[in-house]
Amino acid sequence: MTGPPVRRTERLVLRQWGEADREPFAAMNADPEVMEHLPQPLDRAASDAMLDRLRATIEEQGWGPWAVEHAATRELIGFTGLAVPRHPLPFQPCVEVGWRLARAAWGHGFATEAAREALRVAFDELGLGEVVSFTVTGNVRSRAVMERIGMTRDPAGDFDHPALPVGHPQRRHVLYRVRPPAGGVRR
């Protein structure tokens, strides 16, 4: 039996998670700068549990939030992929595209490159009619990636994230949407 397909871009490999990914994934998830727009950094147990969930999702569906490795160095630099949100959101049902990269991988266009491949899978392989993405209002880096991959903000869809309590500074989120382009996604 073969595993889930490996996806490749010019500089990246999007693949299933392996045991060797645990340490770099935990280091990324413990970095306060990487986790600035999330409720809190993750300890090792929470990071390992997340990796297990991501791996199981890909195993079950054949797609999900893939481990992203730099093709030349084989180094894990983060994750990018597709997911069905775990919390009840006002615009569901939906599939979101998301990413998280280690600080050293920022500023090289890797999130954009990997997210474009995720959208190609969503539209060309899965036949989805729309993909969403959302983040904390102040996360300008992720919002810039959303715009670079052709997503448009839907201000009417902005929402308070139900996983965060009223008054939490990260509760307000912005919603972006994208539909498949005519002729499929271009890399």
Rank of each mutant, 00 (worst) to 15 (best):
residue 1 M to Y: 15
residue 4 P to E: 05
residue 5 P to W: 12
residue 11 R to G: 07
residue 13 V to K: 10
residue 14 L to R: 08
residue 15 R to Y: 13
residue 16 Q to Y: 14
residue 17 W to P: 08
residue 20 A to W: 15
residue 21 D to T: 07
residue 21 D to V: 09
residue 22 R to E: 15
residue 25 F to I: 09
residue 25 F to T: 02
residue 26 A to T: 09
residue 29 N to C: 13
residue 32 P to C: 05
residue 32 P to S: 02
residue 33 E to W: 10
residue 33 E to G: 02
residue 34 V to C: 08
residue 34 V to W: 05
residue 38 L to N: 03
residue 41 P to K: 05
residue 43 D to N: 10
residue 46 A to W: 06
residue 46 A to T: 07
residue 46 A to H: 07
residue 47 S to A: 14
residue 48 D to Q: 05
residue 48 D to R: 00
residue 51 L to N: 09
residue 53 R to H: 14
residue 57 T to Q: 15
residue 61 Q to I: 01
residue 65 P to I: 14
residue 65 P to C: 15
residue 66 W to I: 06
residue 68 V to E: 10
residue 70 H to K: 03
residue 72 A to N: 10
residue 75 E to R: 14
residue 76 L to W: 13
residue 78 G to I: 08
residue 78 G to Y: 09
residue 79 F to Q: 08
residue 80 T to S: 15
residue 81 G to F: 11
residue 81 G to I: 09
residue 82 L to Q: 00
residue 82 L to I: 03
residue 82 L to F: 12
residue 84 V to C: 13
residue 86 R to F: 14
residue 86 R to V: 15
residue 86 R to H: 14
residue 87 H to R: 13
residue 87 H to K: 11
residue 91 F to A: 02
residue 92 Q to M: 11
residue 96 E to V: 03
residue 96 E to I: 08
residue 105 A to L: 01
residue 106 W to Q: 01
residue 107 G to N: 07
residue 108 H to P: 02
residue 111 A to C: 02
residue 112 T to R: 09
residue 112 T to I: 07
residue 113 E to L: 00
residue 113 E to Q: 02
residue 113 E to C: 01
residue 116 R to P: 08
residue 116 R to T: 09
residue 119 L to Y: 11
residue 119 L to N: 00
residue 120 R to D: 11
residue 121 V to K: 10
residue 124 D to E: 03
residue 125 E to F: 10
residue 129 G to D: 13
residue 130 E to Q: 12
residue 132 V to L: 15
residue 133 S to L: 07
residue 136 V to W: 13
residue 137 T to N: 14
residue 138 G to I: 05
residue 138 G to E: 12
residue 142 S to Q: 04
residue 144 A to F: 12
residue 145 V to M: 06
residue 148 R to S: 09
residue 155 P to L: 07
residue 155 P to I: 01
residue 158 D to A: 03
residue 158 D to G: 00
residue 159 F to N: 04
residue 159 F to S: 04
residue 160 D to W: 13
residue 161 H to R: 03
residue 163 A to R: 04
residue 167 G to A: 10
residue 167 G to N: 11
residue 167 G to M: 05
residue 167 G to K: 01
residue 171 R to T: 06
residue 172 R to S: 10
residue 174 V to H: 12
residue 175 L to T: 03
residue 175 L to E: 07
residue 176 Y to P: 00
residue 177 R to L: 08
residue 179 R to Y: 14
residue 186 R to M: 12
residue 187 R to A: 14
